[in-house]
């Protein structure tokens, strides 16, 4: 697969993943561009891999995790004010939306590795073992991050999802 073909197929999902990680559109774009440039530089090696997309996703994750070390980017602590920006969706005055806005705001307060675990687990649908590979740690560490993050997010693992009723929301 040529790089251009890969980029055309995956760029949109990489941008979404980057945005999930950092919560900032400009930063997500910068991170994705930076990673794709590096991927292009060594594309002939990457394209030989079984999962080039997984490799580039790991590159993007590492880019996110190393941002503070290199640039000390302030934590993207999303606030309701920030959500009122031009990219914010129109407000839907229902409880479900308020709940999700609360979750998004709390996600922005998580330490970086915890945030990455949540996004990889619940947005990218990776197993804990796969997340461990991405983050370069053990699966038990992933579970520890997830437990801490879910507590911060106030996600109750024992709570019965309303979506099980088949109301058409979510997954």
């Amino acid at each position: 697969m040529r790089f251009e073909e890969f980029a055309a197929a995956r760029m949109s999902s990489l941008l979404r993943y980057a945005f999930m990680l950092c919560g900032d559109r400009e930063l997500a774009r910068d991170m994705t561009q930076e990673v794709l440039i590096r991927a292009l530089v060594k594309w002939r090696r990457i394209e030989r891999l079984d999962r080039p997309d997984a490799y580039v996703r790991t590159m993007l994750t590492n880019e996110f995790l190393s941002l503070r070390r290199r640039k000390a980017v302030a934590t993207v602590a999303l606030t309701y004010d920030a959500l009122d920006g031009p990219a914010a969706p129109a407000v839907r005055p229902d409880d479900a939306y308020a709940d999700r806005a609360d979750l998004w705001q709390r996600l922005g307060t998580l330490p970086r590795r915890q945030r990455a675990v949540i996004v990889l687990r619940y947005y990218e649908d990776l197993s804990d073992a796969e997340i461990a590979d991405v983050l370069g740690c053990g699966a038990s560490t992933v579970r520890a991050y997830a437990t801490r993050a879910l507590a911060t997010l106030r996600v109750d693992m024992t709570k019965t999802p309303a979506l099980a009723t088949g109301d058409g929301e979510g997954r």
């Binding site: 979750l103 619940y122 997010l153 996600v155 999802p161 099980a164």
Partner: peptide, 9 residues
């Protein structure tokens, strides 16, 4: 409190 599906959504 929230549930996992709310988080996914």
């Amino acid at each position: 409190t929230h549930d996992i599906d709310q988080l996914r959504q």
